[in-house]
């Protein structure tokens, strides 16, 4: 829609493209950071985790760049209609991606702690959850760059699987902790890791909503299935 035809002032198009490039770069970095954080956790690789922690600064720097760029576009170009939505959406998405970066960094920090404890079981579920969420980040960035609201909608629907995995992981971790109190330290960290991954999934869903707004100028109707039962989950309560 946006790229159908160019603006009379070609510098305006350059500015808009620049926004897309920044979001693409930032999103790519965040996806990579998240993948590395999960990999470090699964492989108990403290060194990789440290690298993830340090690299978060790059995402923050790009966010600042997006902020400045959008503010100057609002002031100098006074974008209207779909152009305005492009600028506003970039501003919003950048802040969401920055949050995704923070969560990945937190996963990496906990990984550093976890590597100092004996290994516990559920890394397969974590890896699977991480895979789904990484796919969501990847797809939603494509949806943004291609202005594809349907693809974004698809990402929104995938969040259900993440919620279900989160609930099952939660039960699994509670069980481990009850079986062996020595695993509590690692499992407590893993509970937060699971929550972080789940939150990243939510953020990918938020980006999907912003993409929908970008394309249609309205927010999607909230008919998204939700399946996160972890807040209600009790294991062994009947004893």
């Amino acid at each position: 829609m946006v790229k159908d035809h160019d603006h009379i002032v070609s510098k305006f198009d350059e500015d808009l493209n620049q926004l897309d490039n920044l979001i693409a770069e930032m999103g790519g970095l965040a996806e990579h950071q998240f993948a590395d954080a999960i990999k470090a956790l699964v492989k108990r690789d403290g060194e990789l985790a440290e690298k993830v922690i340090l690299s978060d600064k790059r995402i923050d720097a790009i966010e600042e760049n997006v902020d400045q760029h959008t503010i100057s576009m609002l002031a100098l170009r006074q974008p209207m209609a779909d152009d305005l939505r492009v600028v506003i959406t970039a501003l919003r998405i950048a802040s969401v991606i920055e949050r995704i970066g923070d969560y990945s960094k937190n996963i990496a920090k906990r990984t550093v702690a976890i590597t100092q404890t004996p290994p516990v079981g559920p890394s397969r579920t974590i890896a699977r959850m991480g895979n789904v969420v990484q796919g969501m980040i990847n797809t939603v960035l494509d949806a943004y760059l291609q202005r594809d609201a349907e693809l974004a909608e698809d990402v929104r629907l995938r969040d259900e699987e993440v919620d279900a995995l989160h609930t099952s992981l939660f039960r699994e971790l509670l069980t481990y902790m009850m079986e062996d109190p020595r695993s509590i330290s690692a499992c407590a960290h893993l509970l937060f890791v699971a929550k972080n991954i789940e939150r990243i999934g939510d953020h990918a869903t938020n980006i999907a909503e912003h993409v929908y707004f970008l394309v249609h100028g309205t927010l999607p109707e909230d008919n998204r299935p939700k399946d996160d039962q972890s807040s209600y989950t009790v294991v062994g309560g009947e004893d």
Binding site: H7, I8, M80, A81
Partner: peptide
Amino acid sequence: IFTTPQDQRTQDYITGRFG
């Protein structure tokens, strides 16, 4: 009209794409 115009021609005009 200035945020979500319905017609492509309106959109093009107000965003400075008329050519």
